[in-house]
């Protein structure tokens, strides 16, 4: 925020100098005070208009990226690369159940885990090894980013740790450039999905974001779900009660 204020101040000062030097150039006397004031106000208006325009353009871009998801069909090229956000315990079990039914065209799979999560890694290796059969060899990789939120961590400090986690997840997502991000609610999926979304906003790559709310959410969405409801391209819930509450969501029955 401080930096933005500084930029604005510099703009206004430049406007003031510009106006006064123009006044000097036209050799306007001290009698033209009201005119100078008017020109300064005009400058301020121009600055504000430019800022509004930028905000509007950004909003338009965000809206376009959100709409793009529905038309994006990466499957037409034959294979779809996945970024899967696995979380502690139950989340990983659930997401592996979902992956188990996908065809071999979904490859390679890049798993993103919270740094402190050892158990998920073992589960993933076990899962991928059982998937490898005959000629078919599954290709996958595991990446780690700092945990964005521990169980029981307060909302305000979660915000800071999520930002910190973004510093790692954004370059990672930009490097992997998956076609699709699949996640089901661990804290780590918030920075991962926002990174994927930003790549779309910056025009680097439109990544489809698919959020599957955990089966343990029957009446209310998780914090991650509430945040990602707005930026996900497909938001899937597993209980009809939730579908009624969140009209954008999709209900396919129990899928894990």
């Amino acid at each position: 925020m401080g930096a933005e204020c500084h930029v604005l101040e510099t703009f206004l000062r430049a406007g003031h100098m510009c106006v006064t030097s123009l006044a000097d150039y036209w050799e306007l006397g001290t009698g033209c005070g009201p005119l100078l004031e008017w020109m300064e106000q005009l400058w301020l208006l121009v600055v504000l208009a430019v800022l509004c325009l930028l905000a509007l353009l950004l909003a338009l871009r965000v809206w376009l990226v959100l709409r793009q998801g529905v038309e994006c069909r990466p499957g037409r090229k034959g294979c779809v690369s996945l970024m899967v956000v696995a979380g502690s315990g139950g989340h990983t079990t659930e997401i592996l159940r979902l992956l188990s039914s996908l065809s071999k065209s979904y490859s390679p799979t890049h798993y993103v885990l919270a740094e402190t999560d050892k158990m998920s890694e073992d589960k993933i290796h076990l899962f991928e090894n059982t998937r490898t059969s005959g000629v078919y060899k599954s290709t996958y990789s595991i990446h780690r980013i700092p945990r964005s939120r521990e169980v029981r961590q307060s909302w305000s400090s979660s915000f800071l740790t999520t930002l910190q986690s973004m510093l790692y997840s954004f370059p990672l997502t930009a490097r992997l450039q998956p076609d699709l991000v699949l996640c089901n609610g661990p804290g780590t999926c918030v920075p991962a999905c926002f990174s994927a979304f930003l790549l779309g906003v910056f025009g680097i790559k439109k990544i489809i974001i698919i959020y599957v709310e955990s089966i343990c959410r029957v009446e209310t969405l998780s914090l991650s779900g509430r945040l990602l409801y707005y930026i996900s391209d497909y938001f899937i819930v597993q209980w009809p009660q939730l579908q009624t509450k969140y009209p954008k969501s999709i209900y396919l029955g129990r899928i894990v």
């Binding site: 499957g75 065809s103 029955g253 899928i255």
Partner: peptide
């Protein structure tokens, strides 16, 4: 048991997989 195959079918459809 839940039906992950329904999810797979949905995903195939939305990514345009044949």
């Amino acid at each position: 048991p839940g039906k992950p195959e329904n999810f797979a079918a949905f995903l195939d459809k939305v990514v345009g997989m044949k």
